[in-house]
Amino acid sequence: MSERDPDNKHPLEKLMDNPWLLLVLGVVIPTVSYTVWGWIELLALPPATLP
């Protein structure tokens, strides 16, 4: 198995070997895409102009 140079790994395999990077991505992606974007939508909501 000497022919397998650890630096030659596919990026996806490297990602799978790195639970810490997965943890960071797993927290950041939904927090930004779902939560923070949702909060921004609420903040940007205009007041009603009731005729």
Binding site: L25, G38, L42
Partner: peptide
């Protein structure tokens, strides 16, 4: 890996007919 990265966006399932958040979100 796809679960870790993307499955949590689906919390939006509960807010699809809500006011406050728009169609893009």
């Amino acid at each position: 890996v796809l679960y870790i990265l993307f499955i949590n966006l689906a919390s939006a399932h509960h807010l699809l007919v809500d006011p406050g958040v728009g169609p893009g979100w």
